[in-house]
Every structure is written in structure tokens, then in C-alpha cells.
Simulated scan of single mutants.
Amino acid sequence: MVDVSQHELVPEHRVLEDSDLEGLLEEYRIKRTDLPKIKTSDPALPEAATVGDVIQITRDSRTTDTATVYRLVIE
């Protein structure tokens, strides 16, 4: 079976550490549940991701070199 997460077109996904998450939520003045969602069935998720984790996705961008987005893992 092919590991989709290793494909060159899939941006880097990593589980955000709790200490980094606190700073992010404070900076944007939001709650964890305010973040966009990503399902556990998404093949690009790291194997270590569990429900309730926040994933940092770093994509290539035409205008700013890279773009970073965050997603909350849901069932």
C-alpha cells in the first residue's frame, strides 16, 4: 500500500506540542475548538495524532514562501 503522507504534494503535518499550542491560542485569543477540523481518517495525518491534538501544516506558498495552518483532530 502507498503511504500518501510521504507524497511530494502533501504538505508537512506535525502534532503541535502543548507548550506551543498555549502560545498559539493566546496569540489569536481563541479556544482549541475554534480551529478548523481534520478527521482522524485523513491519510496525511501523522500516526501519532489522536483526537484532540492540534496539527500544524506547513505548505509552500507563492506569496510568502511558506504558509502555516492549524487543524484540530476530530473523530
Results as ranks from 00 to 15, higher is better:
16 L>C: 05
4 V>I: 15
23 G>C: 05
19 S>F: 08
21 L>D: 06
20 D>G: 05
55 I>C: 01
20 D>N: 12
29 R>C: 10
47 E>Q: 13
38 I>R: 01
32 R>W: 01
45 L>R: 04
46 P>Y: 07
44 A>E: 11
37 K>F: 03
70 Y>G: 08
49 A>G: 08
43 P>T: 05
30 I>R: 03
14 R>E: 15
10 V>L: 06
6 Q>T: 15
33 T>G: 05
40 T>S: 15
28 Y>Q: 12
28 Y>E: 14
29 R>T: 09
8 E>G: 06
52 G>F: 04
47 E>I: 11
63 T>A: 04
66 T>L: 02
50 T>N: 03
11 P>G: 02
31 K>P: 00
61 S>M: 08
12 E>R: 02
64 T>A: 00
60 D>R: 08
15 V>M: 12
17 E>I: 00
67 A>P: 02
11 P>T: 01
62 R>Q: 04
16 L>V: 12
33 T>R: 13
10 V>G: 01
35 L>I: 13
22 E>Y: 07
21 L>F: 04
70 Y>Q: 12
3 D>C: 07
53 D>V: 04
26 E>C: 02
31 K>D: 15
11 P>Y: 07
10 V>F: 09
11 P>C: 00
34 D>C: 13
22 E>T: 13
5 S>N: 11
22 E>L: 13
34 D>I: 13
33 T>S: 15
50 T>W: 00
